[in-house]
Design a binder for these strands. Structure first.
Lengths: 206, 206
DNA sequence: TTAGTATTCAAACAATCGTTTGAGTCGCAT
DNA sequence: ATGCGACTCAAACGATTGTTTGAATACTAA
């Protein structure tokens, strides 16, 4: 097990990510995936055991880093002088947006996330909850601190809307055409829009 | 072709709606659909021609009425004295929320809508655009009127976020548990939250 | 009643699905 | 060089997919 940059495993993960984003988890077949990855069909079951486990690993590959980045950004925001709601949202949004510009697969992955959001797949939700719920808890704590006028039910309501809105918006981010802007400028502009939008919605009087 | 309340055609549409919401368009098989509808397998191809056309008809059955209701609500809002942004949003949101409480299938359909949003299916988008784009145009015109400080690009940006957020939130509306509230009360509360949230996000200074 | 159309039905179609198999190949340590 | 584990490969597995067929049934109009 050497560490190769373009090993069979990584090629499969990359191709699966793109095709899951394009056709969905049920809609993308393993033959499409292995063909795009230029890999033998049996390689999926050899390296991942099953299609369902492949799906999980597609998430794990990105979410491990994404959640680490989000927690780091949150820690940095908390240390900031004059820490406000917008900073919390920034710590949540910016690492995900950075993903869309990092490499080719990142943009696809955000769309995969939006699909997982739309699906209410039992096992997938359990997998995500088991592995990454602690990150969400950290953010919820800070949101609750900045929005003391909202009771717990109301807060969850709004965070649910906000996370849904952000997920959808970021999924479309890669698709929307930008005119005369660098990728970096477009990303900054997007982040500001999303944060301002979300902050306004969260702060609205109950 | 008599008008029956529970004809084979309608039973198929109802079952398909529920199963598409639960398992997705690719994930729900025609055998699952026909079995749930208590109808012969061949009935789908006999009445609808193909699975893809069945999907279209699932949308048409609800969207025809939904868009009529939305345009009627918009007309009523425009005639109102002191017509404001919140009224436009109300005309957009309330008919969709009413759908979730009308009958059993309505709640499923809103989730189907959220799936269609997450998918970027070429043919489905064309079908929706061909049949219902005139409704969206009406709403966009009023949003543009109420938000003159936003240029066209910025407006589309925010509407994209808002429609995504609303679609997702309404899809979860049927899932979220309500404590001590009637369906009507819960729907009103939901509408108020969504409208206030969206209005705040749309009005935020650029 | 009868002719004709509309619908339902069981059965089968070819195609594709995820998965398994067993032989084959590769690289590396002994 | 030899042996061993890691990996790849073509081929096939049974199950399931959407769709089609032709006969049987239900319904409607004359």
């Amino acid at each position: 097990m050497t560490i190769e940059l373009f090993s069979t495993k990584q090629r499969i993960l990359g191709a699966a990510e793109v095709l899951f984003a394009k056709h969905g988890f049920a809609g993308a077949s393993l033959r499409q995936v292995t063909s795009a990855a230029q890999v033998n069909l049996a390689a999926v079951n050899y390296h991942f055991g099953s299609k369902e486990n492949l799906i999980n690993e597609v998430f794990r590959r990105r979410l491990d880093g994404l959640n680490t980045d989000r927690l780091a950004a949150l820690a940095q925001a908390r240390a900031k002088q004059g820490y406000v709601l917008e900073d919390t949202l920034d710590a949540f949004v910016r690492p995900a947006l950075a993903l869309t510009g990092s490499d080719h697969g990142g943009a696809s992955f955000v769309r995969v996330l939006a699909r997982a959001y739309a699906e209410h797949n039992e096992r997938l939700r359990k997998f995500l909850h088991d592995n990454y719920s602690h990150v969400l808890k950290e953010f919820v704590a800070d949101f609750a601190h900045f929005l003391p006028h909202l009771d717990k039910q109301e807060l969850y309501w709004r965070l649910d809307i906000v996370s849904g809105a952000l997920t959808y918006a970021m999924a479309d981010f890669g698709v929307i055409k930008r005119r005369g802007l660098t990728e970096q400028q477009h990303r900054d502009l997007t982040a500001r829009h999303l944060i301002r939008f979300a902050a306004a919605g969260l702060r609205a009087e109950g």
